[in-house]
């Protein structure tokens, strides 16, 4: 897992938190063997606690739903079967692909908007930019219920197609604050004012400066926002339940319908939960370092 790296994640974070100085093992930084043993015992204990639900998910998903008795529910399946996976896939398959159609455009569009906004707010500022930025940020914290009721009417009256297109639009709009924040912090700490000045002196306008000077060094910022928005859109349930349904909505809706059914088939539900989590888990495992970068964007004060 790449997240094992000790360097702080790129983007947003790095310049904020100064590179950790290697703490020299001075007297107090060394632990006694006993202390070390206690540390490991505790770490392992919590490891088991954290992994326990994952164990249950995996093990149960390979059981036959009808055979889950009260006894041996924690044990391995007596017969390993993929029947529950097949059942879950039947229920979730269409929405699984639909969710990619949702999350990928959202990730890309949001990132571009965020990059443009972040650039302006960090390096092409105008009077009152700080106030505007604060007003933008507020949009990130609102409980979406407070816009949901009219939102439903608005998206309908502007003739957005129901389901995925509507959700793409909505996630793009409400993703603007976070993406703007990430890029603003990123540019503010990694792009020296002098580069912009130099570009301006050369007579380059805003767009040319952005395209030729800024974008090429924005990759780390993009990775963070793309991962962030992809994960948010993939895991969203609130917008989905208000603006779509099992026929045209993302996988969270389909999963909730599968798992919330009467006398739920736990084996199929858990296989479904795994299917629904797979893409974000893959992103986490492959790009863990940047994933964490998104989570920590700007949250560490220098």
């Amino acid at each position: 897992m790449t997240s094992t790296t000790t360097t702080p994640p790129p983007a947003a974070l790095p310049a904020v938190a100064p590179k950790p100085r290697k703490a020299k093992p001075s007297g107090i930084n060394r632990r006694s063997p006993a202390g070390r043993a206690v540390t490991y015992v505790l770490l392992l204990f919590f490891l088991i606690v954290v992994l326990m639900p994952a164990y249950v998910l995996v093990v149960t998903s390979f059981k036959n739903g009808r055979d889950i008795g009260v006894n041996g529910q924690w044990g391995l399946p007596t017969v390993w079967t993929t029947i529950s996976w097949a059942k879950a896939w039947t229920a979730l398959g269409p929405s699984f692909f639909r969710t990619f159609e949702l999350a990928i455009p959202v990730a890309l569009i949001s990132s571009f908007l965020g990059a443009a906004n972040g650039f302006v707010l960090a390096r092409w500022r105008f009077p009152g930019a700080d106030v505007v930025f604060t007003l933008i940020l507020f949009g990130m914290f609102i409980p979406y219920q407070s816009v949901m009721i009219p939102l439903r009417e608005v998206v309908h009256s502007i003739h957005l197609l129901p389901g995925i297109p509507t959700l793409i639009f909505v996630h793009c709009v409400y993703g603007i604050p976070i993406c703007t924040l990430i890029f603003r912090n990123y540019y503010a700490t990694t792009v020296p004012v002098e580069i912009i000045e130099a570009s301006r002196v050369d007579g380059a306008g805003l767009l040319r400066t952005f395209a030729s000077v800024i974008l090429p060094i924005s990759i780390p910022g993009f990775v963070v926002t793309i991962i962030w928005q992809f994960t948010s859109a993939w895991n969203d349930y609130l917008f989905a339940i208000f603006l779509s349904n099992t026929n045209n909505g993302p996988i969270t809706i389909a999963l909730n319908a599968l798992a919330g059914a009467q006398s739920p088939d736990y084996a199929a539900s858990m296989a479904g939960a795994l299917i629904a989590s797979l893409p974000t888990l893959v992103v986490y495992v492959v790009l863990g370092r940047w994933f964490i970068g998104g989570l920590m964007a700007g949250s560490v004060k220098s």
Binding site: A15, V16, F133, L137, M140, F141, P177, I178, L181, I182, R184, N185, A188, T189, W228, T231, S232, N235, G294, L295, M296, A297, G298, S299, V300, K301, S302
Partner: peptide
């Protein structure tokens, strides 16, 4: 995931 914000925006 939490909004990664908090934004003590430097």
């Amino acid at each position: 995931t939490p909004s990664p914000t908090t934004a003590p925006l430097e």
